[in-house]
Simulated assay, not measured.
Amino acid sequence: MNADEIIQLKKSLTKALESGKIVSVLELMNKLKDKVPSKEVLKRTEIGLIIGRQRTHPNPEVAKLAKEIVKKWKDAVNTIKPNDIPNGFTKSTVPESKAETAKSVTSKPSPKVNGKPRPPKRENTQDSVISSSSDTPTSISSEKQERNFDRDRPAYKSTNNSARDKCVKMLYDSMAFDSCADSDLILLRAITVEKTVFDQFGRQVVDKYRDKLRGLISNLRDKKNPGLRKRVVDGELQVQNFCTMSKEDMASEEKKARDNEIRQENLFKARGAGPAQAETDMFLCGKCRNRKCTYYQMQTRSADEPMTTFVTCTVCNNHWKDSSGDP
């Protein structure tokens, strides 16, 4: 089962769980049970996280099936092939054998000279440098390197337009640098995004085409918004919708919440569009339970809707709004 099939089943399963359709949930989970994804596919699609959460589902059938799937996938992933480990060692014995070898070397008694222990032989400084430098590539290669188009070298067919090809590569880099997804899948998304924008501007490489792609790449590349990259790569966010989203729509959930707080705060600070504040005891503060409040009203919705009342507690400075229109 490839990644695209898993992603489609994942989306359907999520919708079924949100709507509480137990029959559909069991049907989709049985489809997943019949196939065992590879470790790479499990890591890339994160389907294991969704199935794992269902082990505590209120429905006993769903919970039981989830446990069976998790056990089946764990057994399949944890199966170790003999050829994967050299010289017949297991993963647990390889580090121990190295430790024992080092211990036996260091514990060997040093020879004596004239009844006194001979000082340890000093290694050649140049040999030590060479030895330490030889370890450096291993430590560097073990670190996770940032992915990009040139490093992954996906099978890309040129558009015979250098500007378009460059945009595809930049889109690929913006989605791949911290992703575990397959390079072919990321390339497909990059090509689709570029082609969609290219079609939007009359199939011509104009300034508006470049500006649009520049904005999309900037938002995809934002390290504070990994959810946007993941949704585009996984296909949860359709490319057509992504290419028509505004910068505010593409913002992370944290930024949206922060911007909303700022807007609400600005509404409370605005005074010019409404009458002066008046004192009242008609409102009960939900924070300190006092009724010493001030309020003012503003028209924040359409003209046929009642005005919004903004209330501030004079005791604890808590403020809230009431949309009923009545003070």
Rank of each mutant, 00 (worst) to 15 (best):
I140L: 13
Q240W: 05
C243F: 01
F201A: 04
L49D: 15
R118I: 05
M250D: 01
D199A: 11
R164K: 09
T314P: 02
K212L: 07
K195E: 11
P60C: 07
V206Y: 11
C313W: 00
A278L: 14
K74F: 05
R151V: 14
S142C: 15
M245V: 07
T101M: 15
D182W: 02
V36R: 08
H319W: 07
A99T: 15
R291T: 05
S110H: 14
S252Q: 03
K64T: 06
G115F: 09
G20V: 12
K67N: 07
M29T: 01
K15L: 08
K10H: 08
K72T: 04
D127C: 05
E123A: 07
N219S: 13
S107H: 13
R151C: 10
K81T: 10
N87K: 11
P60M: 09
R221M: 03
S12F: 01
K166N: 06
E261I: 02
K43W: 07
D165L: 07
K230A: 11
K43S: 15
V25N: 01
K21M: 13
K11W: 03
V77C: 08
D34Q: 10
T138Y: 15
K39N: 09
F201D: 05
L42E: 03
D4H: 02
D152A: 12
Q126M: 06
S218Q: 07
L188D: 05
S246Y: 03
K72S: 05
S183M: 09
V206S: 15
